[in-house]
Nucleic acid binder design. Sequence first.
DNA 1: TGCATTTGATTTATCGTTAACCCTCGAAGG
DNA 2: CCTTCGAGGGTTAACGATAAATCAAATGCA
Lengths: 338, 338
Amino acid sequence: MPVTMMDIARDLNVSVVTVSKVLRHQGRISDATRKRVLQHAKKLNYQMNWVARSLVTRRTYTIGLLLPEFAHPFFAEIARAVANGVRPHGYHVLIASFEEDPELEASEVDSLLARQVDGLIIATAQPSRQAEMFKRVAARKTPYVLIDRPVSGLRASFVGADNRAIGRMATEHLIARGYRCIAHLRGPQVGIAAERLEGYRSALKKGGLRHDENYVVDAGYTETTGYEGMKKLLVSNPQPDAVFCYNDPVAIGAMRAIREAGLRLPHDIAVVGAGNVHYNDALSVPLTSVDQGTCKIGTLAAELLLARISTNRGLRPKKILIPPRLVERESTRRGCDS
Amino acid sequence: MPVTMMDIARDLNVSVVTVSKVLRHQGRISDATRKRVLQHAKKLNYQMNWVARSLVTRRTYTIGLLLPEFAHPFFAEIARAVANGVRPHGYHVLIASFEEDPELEASEVDSLLARQVDGLIIATAQPSRQAEMFKRVAARKTPYVLIDRPVSGLRASFVGADNRAIGRMATEHLIARGYRCIAHLRGPQVGIAAERLEGYRSALKKGGLRHDENYVVDAGYTETTGYEGMKKLLVSNPQPDAVFCYNDPVAIGAMRAIREAGLRLPHDIAVVGAGNVHYNDALSVPLTSVDQGTCKIGTLAAELLLARISTNRGLRPKKILIPPRLVERESTRRGCDS
DNA sequence: TGCATTTGATTTATCGTTAACCCTCGAAGG
DNA sequence: CCTTCGAGGGTTAACGATAAATCAAATGCA
């Protein structure tokens, strides 16, 4: 029912190809006919049928964005950056979230491939060594870029935070502020958490501080688990005077536990988070946090992917680590209030 | 390069149509050939080319989701609900954000239509009476559902919060808790804010309280503007003992202003927000808020749209208002601490 | 046996565009 | 006058699927 090139062609007594050429600014067309076509197209309010075009050009100008979960502010911001990054180049974004379910993830990847996306950006939840899914993507020669969660042993482009640096920076900050007994609420048993832990350790070592294994407690990645984790830390002896938390929600949970224990923040215990979510300022004690450059991750991933798409091969995988940035707030400012 | 139906057909000495029928579970096919086709398809790792299918069936199984902005938790959650809502029906979501720019919005709508989406879900920023964009959508007979922001005078389906009820519920709650001098930090000059204001007024009236125009102050929709707005309210005479805020960020800003003025919360002034963002619990004084059923908005919009798509016409526009729900926290619990 | 019906598959014609090649006509050049 | 060439188009054949119609062989039924 919508207007097609044929409608224009018929009305103007020219061939469909001529119309197509005009609309693509391609081929030799006289100014006269070009004008007529353009004018009539506008009059009929013609809109390209991208499905038809895609079929023949084999390009959809669509990229797939596969995320574990959108509601999370981190991924939401990435989605935003990706969409804004590809728009100027005429691309659109087909999103899919898989709620941290690896099987759903794989099936969504297949769907996106079937829809002929030109490229994929994935924050994967595939268990390591399970490269089956990526093989299928590679088999189609569809370019893809991993974000946030690297997959060891996979020759693929990657953009993510420098988690070691995050751990190091947070811990060094605490040391610089004079804290000496620094604990860590670590995240779930995956690569990211391990790297942040490693950064924490290396900073302690470099600062000449003893590393006590009791000061590292599993705390998941939510506020609740952070709260629980902190309660465990509070009974250790000696009580830590600072905590580096896996992420901001964990830090928020930890702060609640600290307050409930009747301790003052940051006077008795300082807290650093990671992620720098935008409401950190609004907390009772604004939270010092390591910003992981979320927006940049999305932007760079988009850039990288578009580069892969246009120069269709020859490029070797590129890994980009975004350097973190410390945003200091009240939760680590002992110097100021005591 | 990818495997096509023709590859399968050639290998098996059957026609392409036979393959197509098997894959669609349609038409009469003997068990023998069905099995052969299925087996060979799996062996070649065949994946449907949805672009080709869409061209002939005129259905892309793709819906467009147009949002003013994704990073906002409200819209992020809606996106999530929509995606999860349509997935079981085989649909995918093409997203576009327009950063509150009406012109960009219109151009994105055109792009999505050109990509032949089966339907659209839009949280529009088109100025009222500017239905040009919607006319183009309607001209294509592409079903669409508006969310969150209604457009007056447009015969279109809509799903959103019941803003009058939100204003009423928040205010009634304050009245029930014994507050008598209730102010309102209102949002920007659009429909939503006006309705919440209206709800606020009607609750005051119903509660037999006098309505003082000085108690209604513009406060935008961000924390900063909320902070500024509250400072103005604090110098009014008599000082209000409760504030209903347009949304949670505004409420957070207001709470900061209250604290900075040396007043206790909720003892001296109570605060209610709206939106019930998920970090309200983590604030210094957990914020009472009116939940607007964000998730439900997305889910229902998806449902409604799919219904329009499948029964292609005859349905008259349907407007759904999600009834709000009050979530009480510390910020309005005077009874408890005094 | 003869004719209608069912079964299982094939043929043909799109869907709306683009790629690749072909055609025509007038002007230029020898 | 004949050839050549380029400008300005047109023709034909995909792209990878589905819809609709058709067909041959097997089956049913009187």
